[in-house]
Design a protein around this nucleic acid. Sequence first.
DNA 1: TTGAAAGCGCTAACAA
DNA 2: TTGTTAGCGCTTTCAA
Lengths: 344, 344
Amino acid sequence: MKKMPSPIPKLSDVARLAGVGNATVSRVLNGRMNVSQEKILRVTQAISTLSYSPNRFARSLKGAASGMIGMIVPSISDLFFSRCAEAVESVARGKGSLLIVMASHDDPLIEFENLQQLLLHRIDGLILSSALMRNVKLHKELRELRVPVIGLDRPLHKANIPSVMSENLEGAKAATEHLLSHGYRKVLCMHVKPELYTIRERLRGYTQAIKKVGLEPLLEIVQNSEDAEACLAKHIGSAKSTIAVFAANNLAARYCLEALRTLHLKIPSQVAILCFDDFDLADTLSPPMSVVQQPVDDLGRNAAELLFLRMQHFARGIPETNSDPMRLPTRLIIRESCGCRPCL
Amino acid sequence: MKKMPSPIPKLSDVARLAGVGNATVSRVLNGRMNVSQEKILRVTQAISTLSYSPNRFARSLKGAASGMIGMIVPSISDLFFSRCAEAVESVARGKGSLLIVMASHDDPLIEFENLQQLLLHRIDGLILSSALMRNVKLHKELRELRVPVIGLDRPLHKANIPSVMSENLEGAKAATEHLLSHGYRKVLCMHVKPELYTIRERLRGYTQAIKKVGLEPLLEIVQNSEDAEACLAKHIGSAKSTIAVFAANNLAARYCLEALRTLHLKIPSQVAILCFDDFDLADTLSPPMSVVQQPVDDLGRNAAELLFLRMQHFARGIPETNSDPMRLPTRLIIRESCGCRPCL
DNA sequence: TTGAAAGCGCTAACAA
DNA sequence: TTGTTAGCGCTTTCAA
């Protein structure tokens, strides 16, 4: 029985059709200079008539880059990370790379497994929002990696890895100062997950602003809307005047919002609120929510661009020079929930 | 100069250390049965002491699957698609596959390029929320693909490809019927992008419900909140009683919500509203929004599982039998915006 | 400027 | 049950 010719054309098919050697086709493919115009033409024609495209596996087996970068984030469906991922994908697309996104669900073990998977697939680089900052094992692993890594939203300088994040401290400080400028004497800070770097930074910013005016910081962890209710009840009890809440992220804001509804408290006349992290309906709520907006797209884009730069350096053997985090400024978006009147 | 031994161990390193032939290592790696217990042990030990893992490129060059599946969606940061993607990623992870997500931005050209990219990387399968249903070129392309494809949210039966989606028509019908059951005589349907299959189906469901009670359907395209305002003003003008709005997706609902706020109209006493697609703060709004909830995770999971099934069949040469869409039921979540009282 | 030929790391057919 | 060996499709010396 005769063997059918493979339906998928290969380099040697192109060579045969063009009447040249394999090496010449390869040279044309890779833009090497030392090929005559005539053969270049013959080869390119053969390529297009066969609609040939090179087999990436064979190339990569020979040492070429895989053309894929990885990204590990706590959650794919979280708006913050999905927007970052979209920005990263967009940059990657421009560089001819594909993006593989994996979710760690904030579990260091899953994160580690994801990392292994990505390495097995020989990604050329990695963007990592690491689940656990103090994970010594991971840090060691990362430092020994044969692949450039950029941190996103969470720092990795302990592993000597550069990262991109928002100015969490400054943003929180500005937000708190804004609330204080309204004259509120009682500004509390509701937050979740204080173990996260970003949250800790925001708490620090809040605390700095509060202490600067000689007040005492009121830090409250809220795990759900009931917590928020209790917290609100506690603080509003004695207050004749408006109290203010700085929510350290939009989950905390959500709990607070639910609590306010349950307690029938008016925003901002009884409780003013301002939260870190913009969210989808912030400007559609009544009243619209004032927020600290993170430059989400820029975070993703910068991380991606930094990564591709590192990958270039890495390929040429240029060592990492600088692992200081890149910090992007936030924007304070004043709407109405903080007590400001709508200004059009 | 002596050549440094490659720092990355290969199969032959394992073989040498274990004192066996390459083929034996390969057999152990692939779980072939005909290897003696003793050698299995020696090989596995050698593997772990070298912490060896096989080179995927070499394997794939030999014809093995790439261990990657692709997913093309209009937007990565859209909550609906990102949640689908998360579900797909989770299934893929369980099957030892990686997921590559690309955004088409609803542009058929980008979608086509993305598809080409994914094919060059030799994905084993594809989940596709196609930007253009009538794209003949794409359909032809898809039918000739050497890779199994599953549609998601948007049908591809014209390309003879199975897909997974919500019961858009039935969900919209039930929602409209619910609004009608409140006694509203004027139930309009605000929508965006009627060219989308899902929207068209929802409009059909709405229309069926309206006609069944002898009313005239009132279909209104709203591109922004000003449109929604105008539309609302027009319909509420003569109405002494409450009017109701069925928003065909959450974007339309958002425009409507903004319009209602601008016009100082009360929900649900003056305008009742119910929308297709749950969204993040639907239950935190005042009043909480009644919605038609899509089984987002199930959509993603089912699409992924269907894809892996197809991939298995495909590998064994079993032809596609059935390209009927799989339709998952929606849930009507009654909150307060439709006029129902809160029931705890 | 060109082509022949030697691998990249793996799998599988074939021999032993 | 084993090991030897010939490729998978490409890139890259090396020699012409």
